[in-house]
Design a protein around this nucleic acid. Structure first.
Length: 507
RNA sequence: GGUCUGGUGGCCGAGUGGCUAGGCUCAGCUCUGCAAAAGCUGCUACAGCGGUUCGAAUCCGCUCCAGACCUCCA
């Protein structure tokens, strides 16, 4: 046996071996062991691009953005696949509903692909605004029709699907004879059988639990492709099975998505993969992000209680008392664990806004800290770092990581105020902590970077003003000094008199 | 009805057998011309009842309440 680890494996952080994930499939927290380290395959169900994404959607993509960032930080070579659903997702509660994209196109009298492009663009804009990194591959369902047809054929050859009147359905009953259908969602097939309502237009199916792999298009359908069975279109669940298999293989490491996709979507994905490829589990770790709620209710398009990122930023929505910046929202969401529901409220957002501001201010002070040669006994900064890793390794516990960062904030502020001394190594350790955990992993960045940094002219102007005000203060001309401070405040510039002179910040 | 989650202090939100979560708010103090910032201190927390245990917010049982999924939704 070769005892030398492969070169690639040596790039992994020593902390990588302690990463634990909450696996929805086993309902256990399990140590993360990828199939082929340092390579990691991760698939996340992306949006259906028939309307603007809302904040609840953002939460899920943010969750997996942090997962992606942390895996990269640990040194994994991650192939992150996040699809765009641009066909096959039906409205209504039966398989006879209208295609969402097609419906939108018909209503607006435009091409389906115009709908797709418009909302794909919107989606990408939103992801950028929230500092969510693009995935390695972003495949579309319409770009994989050939592969989908081929997978249906495999499933049929294995006896788990049947054709009826030009459509093809997955035979859940047959599949369940030799497989544990319902393993992921905890459902039992007999109960599902009893609970499923009798719906119209299901006569083609042998069983109400069966789901569509291919649907024959009727005359009103705008999007359709030729297939061995009919001119039609693929079922919604199929695309994810096809694209994950194509880009990540038949068994890959992580599959993510929103909690609301667990059943039936993800359950069907597993069934399709096994139906086509055999009994081994297609996914080792299933991760599910929980819902964003408003007044205790899930934010969703159909409830009408969602708002778009634009409404959020402008504050132009009845649920919003004011506008909130994207970083505030990002920080707010990271203050809760991804697996729990998170309730949106104005007080909570305002708390996050202030908390983030304090965090960012301390971070900004770091560059200006003066090290001492022989620092007093400094707090144990390596302990902070270890706690930060421990938090992330515990199923991406970002709220605990943030608590660690606030401990670092206290150190920074104390040093800046002269109450504590740090040597150069200590300051570097703090910088590394912020750069790696706040910036790289949590994806936090100072907002209005250009403004906060200030242009030379702005800095010059502010220095002139502060010098004049300093003279007024020296003359005990408090009226003038306060006038300057108040007027600047009205313009969104905060003046702070410290021991070593006056500093300013912009709103 | 079934499956699953959860009920933590003024608010948000971690923690899952003994060890400070954290943020925000509020009050007091330090600093300061005042203010802001920062720091320190404080602010009647673990839905209820019973059980296991030397010890339970944390485990078990029951009750109550809320939410999600079971039909499109991240």
């Amino acid at each position: 046996m070769d005892s030398t680890p492969p070169a690639a494996e040596r790039t992994l952080s020593p902390f990588a071996k302690d990463l634990h994930l909450g696996n929805s499939l086993t309902r256990e927290k399990e140590r993360f062991e990828p199939y082929n380290p340092p390579y990691v395959g991760m698939y996340v169900c992306g949006p259906t691009v028939y309307s603007n994404v809302h904040l609840g959607n953002v939460r899920t993509f943010l969750t997996f953005d942090v997962v992606y960032r942390y895996l990269l930080h640990l040194g994994y070579k991650v192939r992150y696949v996040r699809n765009i659903t641009d066909v096959g997702h039906l409205t209504g509660d039966t398989d006879d509903g209208e295609d969402k994209i097609g419906k939108k196109a018909r209503l607006e009298n435009i091409e389906p692909m115009e709908v797709v492009q418009r909302y794909t663009n919107d989606f990408h804009d939103v992801m950028r605004v929230f500092h969510i990194l693009p995935p390695s591959i972003e495949p579309t369902a319409t770009g994989h029709i050939v592969e989908q047809i081929s997978m249906i054929q495999k499933i049929m050859e294995n006896g788990y699907a049947y054709e009826a009147n030009g459509s093809v359905y997955f035979d859940v009953r047959k599949f369940a004879e030799g497989h544990n259908y319902g393993e992921l969602s905890g459902r039992r097939i007999d109960e599902l059988q009893n609970q499923t309502r009798a719906l119209d237009g299901q006569d083609e199916k042998r069983d109400p639990l069966d789901f569509a792999l291919w649907k024959k298009a009727d005359a009103s359908h705008l999007m359709h492709w030729p297939s061995p069975w009919s001119e039609g279109f693929p079922g919604w669940h199929l695309e994810c099975s096809v694209m994950s298999t194509k880009y990540l293989g038949r068994s890959f490491d992580i599959h993510g998505g929103g909690m609301d996709l667990k059943f039936p979507h993800h359950e069907c994905e597993i069934a399709q993969n096994m139906g086509a490829h055999g009994p081994e589990q297609p996914v080792r770790y299933w991760l599910h992000g929980n819902m964003l709620t408003v007044n205790g209710r899930k934010m969703s398009k159909s409830e009408g209680n969602g708002f778009t990122p634009e409404e959020l930023i402008t504050g132009n929505h009845k649920l919003l008392e004011k506008g909130y910046s994207p970083m505030t929202v990002r920080f707010f969401m990271l203050q809760g664990h991804y697996a729990g529901t998170l309730d949106f409220s104005n007080p909570a957002l305002q708390a996050a806004e202030k908390g983030l501001d304090r965090l960012m201010s301390a971070w900004g002070l770091l560059d200006g800290l003066a090290p001492v040669a022989e620092g007093e006994k400094a707090p144990d900064l390596s302990a902070l770092r270890a706690r930060a890793y421990a938090a992330m390794n515990d199923d991406f516990n970002t709220p605990v990581l943030i608590a660690v960062l606030y401990d670092a904030v206290k150190v920074v502020n104390s040093v800046a105020a002269g109450r504590m001394a740090l040597d150069a190594d200590g300051i570097e350790a703090l910088k590394a902590l912020f750069n790696e955990f706040a910036c790289d992993i949590l994806g936090l960045q100072p907002e209005n970077a250009s403004e906060a940094g200030g242009s030379d002219r702005t800095d010059g102007l502010m220095e002139v003003i502060c010098t004049l005000r300093g003279e007024a203060k020296a003359n005990k001309d408090w009226a003038t000094a306060d006038l300057i401070r108040d007027r600047l405040a009205e313009l969104g510039v905060q003046i702070k008199d410290g021991k070593d002179g006056t500093s300013w910040t912009f709103d």
